[in-house]
Design a protein around this nucleic acid. Structure first.
Lengths: 200, 200
DNA sequence: TAAAAGATAGTAATTGGTTACTATCTTTTA
DNA sequence: TAAAAGATAGTAACCAATTACTATCTTTTA
């Protein structure tokens, strides 16, 4: 049980900081999140953040690691529960959508980091995560082709790109509507078209 | 021909300003573009910008109007050249990709504006533009269903969402690769899958 | 076992630097 | 030569980061 005292231990404080940034990113442009805003939401002074992180970039790096770990774990779990590649693809899609629904700030942060001119530490972490994601995705697509579930002449590179882009499109639509839960509702219809485009 | 003089007329200066912002957005995170950076790129002092725009938001609004006008004009041209709805859809897709290739900062700015918490003037312009875009898109999809080119049971709402998301996916991929021209190369393969997903 | 000693977490105030924006003076050009 | 365009030199507000200090928790030891 957490103590009811005000002071958290260093690792707990770092965890809370990361979760707070994810939360704030769901409410505003991630690149406009200030250390003052993070601290205020946490009920701590701004300077206190720098007792646990050397600088702001280190906070963002921690956030990216947090995202990588949680998202990829969900994906793995969804895949392992489904023996059929096509079923696994759908489960992976829905798991991703569910994750983004729960943490709407995440895709905004990823996209924002990729936009940065200089290749910062957090940007490299994002690239690494998407790479891992793509590998899992392409493995599933290849499996599906071999099992006859997918079009044998499918361009897996394009199919992987479209898979990720589809989710990005759902995010954009939810931003337009100002309603995060719209994603969950739209996801099945959109995946149905995607499925029709790749199946054998 | 432009005069060789140093001083531009007010409307010319405004035009150059808008183009400069679009240019800078292709090189860095749009929300980190400062008025100082814009002025420097134009070869003008920072204060000079405020002779032609009341504030920074007005600059961004002008950029959004510039984008709306140019993009929608391209789309209309692409559509009108193709009698068949499916051919028109493909031409619309490629025209959009070509536009984004020429102005990589545009999708980043749109996405960034939508992320803003408060609904600013530029944000409303973005929403308006996407609305106009979606109307054209849905009209084409309905046409395609009626002509038998598209799946009669197609969910046009989902199909429109996926169309836009597909382009967003191409943008993200080009950011990852750090190569804008990658989009032009990947576009046909991705559209082929989309086409397969919606055709009758 | 309780008080001293040390380690850890957080505060309050302040730093130098950057931001959008403005007031005033100078140059260009029609 | 008058009006428009731009230069110069500011402003207050905000940013990340640092400082000197205090509160709180943990370990040691008499």
């Amino acid at each position: 049980m957490k103590t009811s005292s005000k002071n958290l231990r260093a690792d707990e404080r770092r965890e809370v900081t990361v979760e707070t940034v994810v939360e704030l990113a769901g409410e505003q442009n991630p690149s406009e999140i200030t250390t003052a805003a993070i601290a205020k939401r946490m009920g701590v002074t701004q300077g206190a953040l720098f007792r646990h992180f050397p600088n702001k970039e280190a906070i963002l790096s921690s956030v990216m690691e947090w995202v990588s770990k949680r998202l990829l774990a969900r994906i793995d779990k969804a895949i392992s529960k489904n023996p059929s590649p096509m079923a696994a693809l759908e489960a992976m899609f829905m798991a991703h959508v569910e994750f983004v629904c729960k943490h709407p700030g995440v895709p905004r942060m990823l996209f924002g980091e990729l936009q940065g001119a200089k290749d910062s530490a957090p940007k490299r972490l994002v690239q690494l995560m998407i790479e891992g994601y793509s590998i899992k995705l392409k493995a599933l697509l290849d499996e599906g082709i071999n099992s006859g579930e997918l079009d044998p002449e499918l361009d897996t590179q394009s199919a992987a790109l479209l898979f990720i882009g589809t989710i990005q499109g759902l995010v954009m639509q939810s931003l337009l509507a100002g309603d995060v839960k719209k994603m969950r509702k739209d996801a099945p219809g959109v995946f149905a078209i995607y499925q029709r485009g790749i199946r054998g």
